[in-house]
Write a protein that binds this DNA or RNA. Structure first.
Lengths: 336, 336
DNA sequence: CCGCTCTTTGCAAGCGTGTGCAAAGCTTGC
DNA sequence: GCAAGCTTTGCACACGCTTGCAAAGAGCGG
């Protein structure tokens, strides 16, 4: 029933009364065709409903135009926002995005990745927090360009995009101090991602430097429920902190909800809270969370730009980019 | 610098001391190869790091294994949840997902879609609410299988997956009535999607049937901010409703936040609220929203299953599926 | 040992495209 | 009018794979 019966360049050529090469050249940017034949070809193509077969083209050129997005926790606000930016910008750059979901913990990741290699993807962008260095090596070995976002693998070659996590941790301490907070806390997941740990280290270091009390708890995956659990831990202590930096906005949302609804704590009067990511929910009235904004648009722009310049063979340029996370002030921290 | 220098089946064949066909057959399920040669081939392939070139294979077979996901509002909780399910299940079925983002309103949609056709995608799954029927026709004309989720195009051929929106609207009225509500309201976006309108019609019809007062407002895109605006509209009226059904959980979150923080309304004491989708935020303590759950896992399962059975040529089977949205009880409606 | 059937294997013809190369056409300057 | 230079065009090969076909081998009953 499905026609699956595509028009080939040959048929277009016949109808236009030219050679097949002419057709091919018409659809190849920068090839030599006269305006006259080009017109004949495009007319015929239009009439027949011709679409270049990108599979065959990729086979010849040995580059497919496919960029592979390797991502876990797709349904998370931060990840999906990044995904939106990346796919949009890739499309504008004339590339096409292949999505690989690494949520499942069984072998499906490897299977999917090798799938990508089999499609001869030109590049991969890894948003996944999984520190699976073997993936990185496999991609590189198969000649793909690689972009790592918020990871810290040491392999040379890929473009690494990171944030100033450590400094953000430091900055928020001064904000807490200015609000008059004395007893600081860091609520982290135990995922142990370099970016999470960077925030933690910066926070702890700055607090010590200022002589402020500081304690750390780590629990679970970096989501809402973990935030609730962390609130339990901190708020059942004999001495409660009066300022909490959550490694992630999702953690912060869970923390705030548990603090308010289960412990009756008023924010920011009794306790200041800050998060990281600036997900959409951070701006919702129930949270109105002061947080660091991940520059998702810029991250995506950098990644895509690097993929494009790389095409012209010039492989120079920064292989490591550090962007700064802007602090977005809302009402979960008392004004200094 | 990038090797881009792949091992071909020929090299594997030479190393294994067999013909090129033998290696091809080894990697083609259901082909006739003796266990002995198969072993020789897989060993050689392993040693050389061989990966079948899916581009070439697709070219021969005239089917690429690519499924194209056409989606708008990728970063929205409901959409990203569906995306997670779909990509996971597609991977398990040995297919690969190509993501097309239709957020931008310029011509990039058409451009991206024709991109998909050029890659000879076997099928497309449309999650986008855009009622752009021309997309549908274009896909069908190019021999793709098609799945439409929560749309109501009339073209024959595609699998259509819908929910019982109308009945959901009816059901929630009885829930409101049981809670003693007298003055009902429906908060909708003005997107005019068939599913949204279905919920509205069911709600209004059932309210009238029960002789309950009911009014409707529509505004903006189906997101949080629109929910806030709708709350303004309803709550500045001389006579406020005491039960509001929001067409979407995001609308409901915005509505609840505005109602509480700007109008000091207590939920569910002074006003009952219900939503639709059961996004993750609906279960957060700040909302604890009674809502209809979209069976995302089942939707994805049906879609992928249909794509798989269709491969064996038997094109029979349901072309239209109606699933029911389960009502998830939480505390935003008073117990009857 | 023969003829039969069944499985395995190699050959070669494609799939739809890009592109180097040489021939052809056109322009220009003398 | 002619040579030189540039642009345009067609031919033919290559890309890596699948698969129909026929030949070769294996098993087996007589």
């Amino acid at each position: 029933m499905a026609p699956k019966d595509f028009i080939s360049a040959l048929e277009v050529a016949r109808r236009a009364g030219v050679s097949r090469s002419a057709v091919s050249r018409t659809f190849t940017p920068g090839a030599s065709v006269s305006a006259q034949t080009r017109k004949k070809v495009t007319d015929a193509a239009e009439a027949l409903g011709y679409h270049v077969n990108e599979l065959a083209r990729g086979l010849m050129r040995n580059q497919s135009g496919i960029v592979c997005l390797i991502v876990s926790d797709v349904a998370t606000p931060y990840r999906s926002a990044l995904l939106r930016e990346l796919t949009g910008k890739l499309q504008n750059a004339g590339k096409v995005a292949m999505l690989i979901n690494t949520d499942r913990s069984d072998g499906s990741v490897d299977r999917a990745l090798s799938q990508a290699i089999r499609y001869r993807a030109d590049a991969s962008i890894i948003l996944s927090g999984l520190p699976d260095a073997s993936i990185v090596r496999l991609c590189l070995k198969n000649g793909q360009r690689l972009v790592l976002i918020n990871r810290d693998d040491d392999e040379p070659g890929p473009l690494k995009i990171n944030l100033d996590d450590f400094e953000a941790g430091e900055r928020i301490v001064t904000a807490f101090a200015r609000a008059g907070c004395k007893s600081l806390a860091f609520a982290n997941s135990d995922a142990g991602t370099p970016s999470l740990m960077g925030r933690e280290r910066g926070f702890v270091a700055a607090a010590r430097r200022l002589g402020l009390e500081v304690s750390v708890e780590r629990h679970g995956w970096t989501g809402y429920e973990a935030g609730c659990v962390l609130a339990q831990r901190f708020l059942t202590r004999p001495r409660r902190p009066d300022a909490v930096f959550c490694a992630t906005d999702l953690l912060a949302c869970g923390f705030m909800d548990a603090a308010r609804h289960q412990f009756g704590i008023s924010i920011p009067d009794q306790m200041c809270i800050a998060g990281f990511d600036d997900i959409e929910q951070a701006s919702w009235l129930s949270y109105d969370l002061t947080t660091f904004a991940q520059p998702v648009a810029e991250i995506a722009a950098r990644a895509v730009a690097w993929l494009s310049i790389g095409e012209n063979g010039n492989d120079s340029g920064q292989h490591s980019v550090r962007l700064t996370a802007e602090l977005v002030w809302r009402s979960s921290i008392r004004a200094g």
